[in-house]
């Protein structure tokens, strides 16, 4: 008798929790939109949403790479430094045109990814330690490359990336959508994606099953760096200046938060691409709501911390259920 009742109760309790874990981020977005609809002037306008989408792009693109890394049970703290390096490289080569400069910026960023991947996959350094060292060293390199100076970038073709639109949709947003699509296909439709997830599930088992664990890991960290570099390029175009000292500061935290809120567990083995997009949008909406209501900085920081705690708490519940 007792087994029956517990069997009945557990799924109920579980299903509420599972629902929150799976759809909590969408629910939160819906609630915030509703709140802003009633209490924030001029919120439900196309211009406003354009602003929010433009602003979310760098965090979103970085978060995509972070989701891949977290899927392998890793973490990448160096993404902000990678953004800084790619921003620093742009003004050096912009004379060759926007595209060559952008390609070189991505390549420079990939070098950091390669260093991360090599340390983690081949030498066996823990991801948090390896990427922490490049988080510090990478920004140093960026400042060296940039001669420690802010440089204005005025190439009109390059600036179009930050300002241009197609049918009202900014280039940067379009680019982000394409990247979301590519990452979603990579995760869900390719062998590489399956390998990534199995490594996150159990690296030992993946090795025993004969998967190319080291190669996949190195590639993942390079991909994460490539995505962060693109974010750095977009940010530079938007600012029309390369600011390696501040660009991407603390973005690793926003990206990790977006990934976790989006339902990808820090313990790896899963990658929720759409959830990550929603997570990034939620963070953006929270920041926007707080600024629009002129909430003092200290309270904004506390509010954001509470939301992150809540998200991580829900994730913890998921680990228990699993």
């Amino acid at each position: 008798m007792s087994t029956v009742t517990s069997a009945v109760r557990l799924p109920q309790k579980g299903s509420a929790l599972v629902f929150l874990q799976r759809y909590g981020v969408y629910l939160a977005i819906a609630l915030l939109l509703l709140f802003n609809l009633f209490f924030t002037p001029n919120f439900m306008t196309i211009d406003n949403f354009r602003v929010q989408f433009i602003q979310v792009v760098p965090v979103l693109i970085v978060a995509l790479g972070m989701a891949l890394v977290i899927g392998t049970e890793g973490i990448d703290l160096s993404v902000g430094a990678v953004m800084a390096l790619s921003a620093a490289v742009i003004p050096l080569y912009i004379g060759y045109g926007p595209l060559p400069a952008a390609i070189l910026a991505v390549l420079a960023g990939c070098l950091i990814g390669l260093a991360n991947g090599t340390m983690i996959a081949l030498i066996g350094v823990q991801p948090i330690v390896a990427t922490l060292s490049l988080m510090v060293a990478g920004r140093g390199i960026a400042l060296l490359v940039a001669d420690e100076q802010l440089k204005s970038v005025i190439d009109p073709g390059f600036l179009a990336l930050g300002r241009g639109t197609i049918a009202g949709v900014p280039y940067s947003v379009l680019l982000a959508l394409i990247l979301v699509g590519l990452v979603a296909v990579l995760v869900n439709r390719t062998t590489f994606g399956k390998q990534l997830v199995s490594i996150g599930g159990s690296r030992r088992a993946a090795e025993l099953a004969g998967l190319p664990v080291k190669r996949v890991l190195i590639t993942i960290y390079i991909l994460a760096a490539a995505l962060a570099s693109i974010a750095g390029i977009i940010q530079t175009a938007r600012l029309s200046a390369s600011v390696p000292s501040t660009v991407g500061n603390l973005i690793e935290l926003s990206a990790i938060t977006a990934v976790v809120i989006g339902g990808t567990p820090l313990s790896g083995g899963q990658v929720k691409v759409l959830g990550t997009v929603a997570g990034a949008l939620l963070l953006q909406l929270i920041a926007a709501s707080l600024i629009k209501h002129n909430v003092p900085d200290a309270y904004s920081q506390i509010t954001q911390a509470v939301i992150i705690l809540l998200a991580v708490y829900l994730q913890r519940g998921k680990a228990v259920l699993k």
Partner: peptide
């Protein structure tokens, strides 16, 4: 992976030939 590595080396090699174009410095 190999092409990425090659490209990375290329990136290093290119640091000698920067072209700041119309960029204005700090």
């Amino acid at each position: 992976l190999k092409s990425l590595a090659c490209a990375a080396v290329l990136g290093f090699a290119l640091t000698g030939c920067t072209n700041t174009g119309t960029t204005t410095g700090g």
